[in-house]
Design a protein around this nucleic acid. Sequence first.
DNA 1: CCATATAAGTTCATTTTTAAGACTGATAAA
DNA 2: TTTATCAGTCTTAAAAATGAACTTATATGG
Lengths: 130, 130
Amino acid sequence: MILRDAFLRVRRFDDFQARLGIARRVLHERLAGLVEAGVLEKVPYQERPLRHEYRLTQKGLDLYPVILSLVHWGDTHYAGEDGPPVRFRHKSCGHTVEPVLTCSCCQETLRPREVQPEFSEALKLALKTA
Amino acid sequence: MILRDAFLRVRRFDDFQARLGIARRVLHERLAGLVEAGVLEKVPYQERPLRHEYRLTQKGLDLYPVILSLVHWGDTHYAGEDGPPVRFRHKSCGHTVEPVLTCSCCQETLRPREVQPEFSEALKLALKTA
DNA sequence: CCATATAAGTTCATTTTTAAGACTGATAAA
DNA sequence: TTTATCAGTCTTAAAAATGAACTTATATGG
């Protein structure tokens, strides 16, 4: 949820806090964890007094498909009669976004049954000994 | 992680338990929660003794883009030198899948900066009063 | 018949997390 | 001078997770 909000352009501690209603301590731990994981970075936006904001790194931006498809899933299955709380407009085509996961090589929609998982030898070994 | 495994065709309690090393109690709670949420369903596969497996419902299958893009993110940023533990082969084109999130209307790759979030009036109100 | 195995839990004691809310410190604005 | 803003930090109580053993129903092998 912190990350979802980060993609909604939320960047500052108190803004996250107000939006999520999460305990400040927990928010602090989460943000610190995300910074340590390299998903967010603290960028100062003023000195005197020193203040910084949390911005997505490239690694964080790479999570965009995850977040957007999760939000879309939530909108599909949980939106009330008024529709979803946030809609996303695709600037290039002007429409409300409906995200679809496709295969980069053939552009087809990816469906679970058309995708065959193949386990690495290392993983097979690890599962056997456990 | 339970759901990731479900998409890897894991369906039975003890298989989840062995793969995840999670406490049985917690696994039970999670599975029950997912069933209650309508993401999984219990399907008996034998009687005497009664045994059942957990299968993804349509709602659960709809989470495929979320899981697949999350796994892909993990593979990109955390895979060791041996490559990712599981590779996904797209049956229709034969290649290892590299998932891309696209806009259903224009087929373009969705990037955070090309997508404009628009808040519903209801949400704006809710944020103001809080 | 008896011991062991399997699947799917359940129970218990102990450790970890989380939550809610008050408090701090630096600075700016009224 | 009082109040507000931002980014935390502290404390205590409640909730959740952990690991290991225990249960129930049935099947299998000797």
